[in-house]
């Protein structure tokens, strides 16, 4: 659920705020552009990793609980 919320925020929230975020620079990119071109995608991978980790742990616990 948390993963889906973060997903929605990155996919839909961040692009809308591009103009505001552009005021800050990161790696020489304006932040808004960077977030949409790369940051959000990297964020997806992080969510994916974290979620896979949590799900695996939950599955293991469930198996152990049986």
């Amino acid at each position: 659920m948390l993963a889906l919320l973060t997903w929605a925020l990155l996919a839909f929230g961040v692009p809308m705020l591009a103009q505001a975020l552009d005021l800050i620079d990161i790696f020489a990119f304006p932040l808004g552009y960077f977030m949409v071109a790369q940051g959000a995608l990297i964020g997806f991978v992080v969510i994916g990793l974290a979620s896979a980790h949590w799900q695996d742990r939950r599955d293991r616990r469930r198996l152990a609980g049986r």
Binding site: L4, W7, A11, P15, A18, Y33, A40, G48, A52
Partner: peptide, 24 residues
């Protein structure tokens, strides 16, 4: 320009959605 990034962003978002909702 910037608006064209929506396509790359959408495909990336789709891969994550597939992992969270569909694949398992």
């Amino acid at each position: 320009g910037y608006d064209g990034l929506s396509y790359a962003l959408g495909i990336g978002a789709g891969c994550l959605l597939m992992q969270l909702l569909v694949a398992p």
